[in-house]
Design a protein around this nucleic acid. Structure first.
Length: 400
RNA sequence: GGAGGGAUACCAAAGUGGCCAAAUGGGCCUGACUGUAAAUCAGGUGGCUAUGCCUUCGAAGGUUCAAAUCCUUCUCCCUCCA
């Protein structure tokens, strides 16, 4: 049923930045084959952020590789850990989520994760960590805390940095790694996946499992995907992300806006291209390589047809400037109308002052003619193309 | 419990009575250049029925012709000592 450990290792170790430890993983794989038992591969999910983006797919794809090799994905919904919030993020305290919100977020999450994971019942197990964390008594918590020293906890880079910078660290944040580690004990995970920011948390799981007399999980750390800006990690709060549920044209357009340097990183991290393959790509025109990347991403999140359509759309809008073929309709009443009112109907600007500014800055065109007078009054005709800023392209239609 | 420091726009951070819709940096937006790149350069970045008006500097009151700035009370945060 299972392929040889060597074959599996070759697939599984690809792209990982750290594995604790490869030897142990090999042993687990050997034992799994011998007993014909799939490994339990754990991945935690934070129910406060239901939007999955490409950054998450780096880890999710690794999970998929485990599934494809016959192993079992165990998704942990951190409904209880969400009460704390992962200290690796911002220091702001999180609002408590209601049971319904968590459920809704979790559903959204699965819907999106399903674009990457195999959701067949035998391949995927879903658990809420409130199942075992909520019933704990204070005595249980104290016992759990006794497993960890402050010095050890302070090794965690975010704690160390914050402490040195004089930023507050609440005691309850120390519980986060312990709770996450305890999850591993409760579900008896064989492997835990995570991004580099999860290294510490995942390693705690190893220790707690050993304390509990279990075989320690393998910790497999995947790289963090840089966001559209090429500087910070891809994250929702920074707004530098491509969501897995975004429409094809958005995915394509955003992918095209990244720097060339970042493009190669994405090729490696998202498409699994090797250095040799990337070197070969660098021979061609960077824009063609970027279009191929963008198309591949659209195909992955949607399908091949969508990828072709997005490429065509992009060419029309930006390369060939066939704006009338890509413009979305904009219904306006017949007769004269102020330019500001006209642009306002597109519904994408936050205020009329904002529109006024864009007009003055030369960002508004009607049929290719720049109009820079915010007081301009025009009489739009059917079929005229209105452009406002880089992204708004509308074709005028008259309201009946 | 004691002492001290702090809260300013999306973020960081100046500003200690009028010249403050508030310096500067980052972010973001627009334009130029391009490959819708990136980098660079230029401009912009509270709202509005707009050369003016309205709302904003933790909250509420007060002093003043005039308050982000002074006073009072309150809320929240941080550090150190115990």
């Amino acid at each position: 049923m299972f392929r040889s450990s060597d074959e599996q290792l070759k697939v599984l170790c690809a792209r990982a930045v750290q594995i604790e430890t490869v030897d142990e993983l090999r042993k687990k794989l050997d034992a799994s084959r011998a007993a014909n038992r799939p490994l339990r591969v754990k991945l935690g999910m934070d129910p406060t952020a239901p939007d999955i983006h490409l950054g998450h797919t780096v880890v999710l794809r690794k999970m998929r590789e485990f599934q494809d090799l016959g192993h079992k994905a165990v998704l942990i919904i951190g409904d209880y850990t969400a009460l704390i919030g992962d200290p690796s993020g911002k220091t702001k305290t999180r609002p408590m989520l209601s049971a319904e919100e968590i459920k809704r977020n979790a559903e959204t999450y699965f819907q999106q994760a399903g674009k990457v994971l195999d959701t067949a019942p035998g391949k995927l197990e879903i658990r809420y960590n409130s199942e075992w964390l909520a019933p704990m008594r204070l005595a249980d918590v104290i016992k759990l805390c006794s497993k960890m020293s402050v010095a050890r906890m302070m090794e965690r880079d975010t704690f160390e940095k914050r402490y040195k910078a004089g930023e507050p660290i609440s005691i309850h944040e120390f519980l986060y790694p312990l709770m996450q580690g305890y999850d591993s004990v409760c579900i008896q995970s064989d492997v835990e996946l995570g991004g580099t920011d999860q290294t510490f948390n995942n390693l705690v799981g190893r220790q707690l499992q050993a304390d509990a007399g279990q075989q320690s999980q393998i910790v497999m750390i995947m790289p963090i995907l840089p966001g559209l800006d090429g500087v910070h990690k891809m994250s929702k709060s920074l707004g530098n992300y491509i969501g897995v549920s975004e429409p094809p044209n958005e995915v394509f357009g955003k992918a095209m806006s990244i720097s060339d340097e970042l493009m190669w990183q994405w090729y490696a991290m998202l498409l699994g291209k090797t250095e040799v393959e990337i070197t070969a790509l660098k021979v061609g025109h960077p824009m063609e390589a970027k279009k191929a990347l963008a198309a591949a991403l659209v195909e992955r999140l949607h399908d091949a047809d969508a990828a072709r359509a997005a490429l065509e759309h992009f060419d029309k809008q930006f390369s060939k400037k066939k704006l009338d073929e890509v413009a979305e309709p904009l219904a306006v009443p017949a007769g004269k109308i102020g330019l500001i009112e006209l642009v306002e109907k597109s519904g994408v600007f936050k205020s009329r002052s904002d529109i006024r500014r864009v007009i003055q800055e030369g960002g508004v065109q009607l049929d290719g003619q720049k109009i820079t007078d915010p007081k301009a009054v025009i009489e739009p005709r059917v079929g005229q193309i209105l452009r406002a800023g880089k992204r708004v392209v509308r074709k005028i239609e008259l309201q009946s």
